[in-house]
Simulated assay, not measured.
Amino acid sequence: MKKLIIIYALALLAASCTKDAGLTYTEKDKIYFAYNYLYYTQVIEYNKVVFSFGMRPDSIIKDTAKIGIRVMGQQADKNRQYRISIDKDSTTAQEGVHYEGLKELNTFGKGLIQDTLYIVVLRSKLNSSHITQENRRLRLRMESSEDFDKGTQKGAVIDLYLNNYLSEPKWWKKYEGYGLYYYHPEKWKILMAFHPSFRDANSDYPMNANQVSTYFSSLRSYLAQNPTYDKETHARVLIDKLVP
């Protein structure tokens, strides 16, 4: 009798696993904004995407923001359509001014579990002030369609923030004591020209202390020899201060 109970339990478990694996899954697939990603062994969650023109040349007046879209279910052998809407009450970006119009129905590619939503963003009306640091928000909601139901609650909404300034990178304050001093976008632009590792705004430490000290010394020399000015106040930018 005990053996029969064990066999029955294993059979139930196998049936459950088969459904979870998608092998006998018959419900409509669910779709959501890809709100997490795996960084080494840690799952990082987010509910916003930031697109900044600040690191792009002034000649770039139009570009494309990208938002991940993920399916909870199975791959398909045909293209499918998913539906998005704009939460106008929580959106400060203006269609035709800060971004080009979005389609209500978008295509999810065949054979994929994750795809990308592309949004054309516009620069000319975004404030470039380092002092004001204006962000325009576009809040998107995932809706049900003929091909998909809405997925997880966390992935139902995502915010796209648009800006046109160079906000302080994550690593800046950690390097202040190595001779970097206060943050200014002109200083960061010069560092990015020195070495591409400085372009990663979300890194904790782009390089080790010995390496950065050499670049910070070069930055000091560059600013001393090449007059560089704050675009708004017109103060001269030096390594450790702004000079009116």
Rank of each mutant, 00 (worst) to 15 (best):
G101L: 02
S144P: 12
S221H: 12
T24R: 05
L105K: 00
N163F: 01
T92L: 14
L122N: 00
T132G: 01
S124N: 10
R136Y: 11
M207D: 08
Y222F: 15
I131Y: 14
V212Y: 01
Y118K: 13
S145R: 07
I7F: 04
F53H: 04
L140N: 02
L38Y: 04
S144E: 12
S217N: 10
Y181F: 15
C17P: 01
P169I: 01
S16G: 09
L105M: 11
M1F: 14
E100H: 02
N47T: 11
K2V: 12
G68A: 08
R137L: 11
E100G: 02
S124V: 13
S218K: 15
Y82M: 03
V120T: 15
F51D: 00
L180Q: 02
K170L: 05
S221F: 10
Y46D: 06
P185V: 08
Q42L: 06
N210A: 07
G73I: 15
G22Q: 08
T18P: 01
T18Q: 09
K3S: 11
H130L: 07
P206I: 05
G68V: 09
L112K: 13
L223D: 01
Q74T: 15
D147E: 12
N208D: 14
A156G: 08
H234L: 13
S128T: 14
L117C: 01
F51Y: 11
T26P: 03
K62T: 13
E134K: 11
H195E: 13
R220W: 05
Y229L: 08
H98M: 06
I131A: 03
L191D: 01
L223I: 02
I6N: 01
K3A: 11
P227D: 08
V237L: 13
K78A: 10
S16R: 10
N127T: 14
A235V: 09
S90D: 15
T24I: 15
W188F: 10
F53D: 09
Q211F: 05
S221V: 12
G101E: 09
L102Y: 00
F194N: 05
G111F: 12
E143S: 11
T26Q: 10
K173G: 06
D200P: 02
D77G: 12
R80P: 07
S197M: 11
S167Q: 04
Y40I: 08
Q211T: 15
S203C: 04
G22K: 11
F33K: 06
V212R: 00
V120C: 07
M192I: 14
V243M: 14
V71W: 04
L166N: 09
Q211P: 01
I5W: 08
K187R: 06
Q133L: 05
Y39R: 06
R199N: 09
G96V: 03
V237T: 13
E143M: 13
Q94N: 14
L160I: 07
D20L: 14
